[in-house]
Design a protein around this nucleic acid. Structure first.
Lengths: 233, 233
DNA sequence: TGTACATCAGTGAACGCGCGTTCACTGATGTAC
DNA sequence: TGTACATCAGTGAACGCGCGTTCACTGATGTAC
């Protein structure tokens, strides 16, 4: 449970690990008992109160920790994907200059990012399961925290798309809105990826297709249809 | 609770209504007790066993009923939107013939559908809350049933897009895949619509933008970029 | 360096309560002849 | 048409059990002087 290594106090960490585990593998965060949690953590039921007021507080603590361990890696893998296609420091070539090159590069970064993303999901399934589950779960506190977290992911993505030149120029609001839609789609599909191992290739292709559709569609609407026509000519 | 009117046996209906209500407004379907449910239904705890083996069976019964009451209305409102733009029986004009007209018409149908969809969500919030919640909830049985239901919605949508000529020709697999992505986005956004009343306009616009992006993006990838260029010229 | 005190994570026993499930029952409706 | 029986939705009492929470406690670590 590498993403909880920052939690120094032994019992607190054990409780958070056990909660993440139970929430991912059996019931929702609001559906198991304090005593069940304590048993799974190997602790006295009472110890819970030393660290948390209630389950919302526990949930928020988990979200905070997991966020720290996931947000940066997700950025890194996007940049990694970008650099695997065009090494860092290469002179930038604008979309106007060479639409085709940029289009193809964008597709490649896309593919690589999706692949890395699902590999990451596979190695941290519990965090994703609990995150997506509680995003629409019954605790308003956790829903709000997780919506904010997804906005954070979308913000990162928008920034990276801009910096890495993965799309022709969009106004900032549209770029953020597209990034949000992509985030939603990716998190949703991560559940299918986890739960339907036999359809993993299909899910990957679906993710790539949605990202391409969303980004190219937004480019068309932003007035870059001639640019895309050139790229595809 | 109009979407449970098909359930004839009084006690069964009361239990399903109470469960839908509790699941939408307090805790997940797996997080309230049988006795709590019975109290809310105004029945003896025992009556539950007359109609259901366990909570999964209750959940499935609710999903079945709600599906019956929601799936057709969602189709109807899409056709309604289409006919409000082009009256039924008007001679069809192909995308090749007049790209601009079809593009504008597609946008209008889109707008009208989104508006009707959210109005529908607003008048049936409980069904949507529980549906989206349990889609990623802790019961594998309900998750599976709800995934199947969403595929049904996507299938309907693909058929309607085809019949109503809302997109230039796509291969069936791409059309279905786009429809699935749109379904996911709409159901996700329906939660924001319900929970953040002050952002409803924004959520509507986001829905419209995502649908436009996904559909136009898929048209570009399917080789219709010149057609779109004509439409936007 | 030693002593006295405070803080803190974790324990164990105990409480009253709501829980799921069972059983035997009721009374209404349907069905066979 | 009447009678006897079956089916079925819903009831009420009872069971043993796990629950959340409380209290007073322990023993380790940190801190003041």
């Amino acid at each position: 449970m590498s993403y909880l290594k920052n939690v120094q106090v032994e019992g607190k960490r054990l409780l958070m690990e056990a909660a993440l585990n139970l929430a991912a593998n059996t019931r929702s965060l609001d559906a198991f008992s304090l005593r069940e949690l304590a048993r799974n953590a190997g602790l006295n039921p009472n110890t819970f109160y030393r660290h948390f007021k209630d389950f919302d507080e526990l949930g928020l603590a988990i979200i905070d920790e997991v966020t720290d361990q996931i947000r940066q890696p997700l950025r890194d893998l996007r940049r990694e994907a970008a650099e695997s296609v065009v090494p860092a420091g290469s002179p930038p070539i604008s979309w106007q200059e060479n639409p085709r090159l940029n289009f193809v590069r964008s597709l490649q970064v896309n593919n690589a990012t999706v692949e890395l993303f699902f590999a990451f999901v596979e190695s941290n399934p519990e965090a994703f399961i609990v995150g997506v589950r509680e995003l629409h779960g019954s605790s308003p506190v956790l829903r709000k925290a997780l919506r904010k977290l997804m906005q954070g992911f979308a913000h990162d993505m928008a920034e990276d798309i801009e910096v890495l030149g993965l799309l022709p120029k969009l106004d900032p609001a549209s770029l953020l809105s597209v990034s949000e839609a992509i985030s939603r789609e990716m998190f949703h599909l991560s559940m299918n990826y986890i739960e339907e191992p036999e359809r993993r290739d299909e899910v990957c292709q679906q993710a790539v297709a949605s990202i391409v559709n969303l980004t190219m569609g937004s480019a068309v609407i932003a007035g870059h249809v001639e640019l895309l026509a050139d790229a595809l000519r």
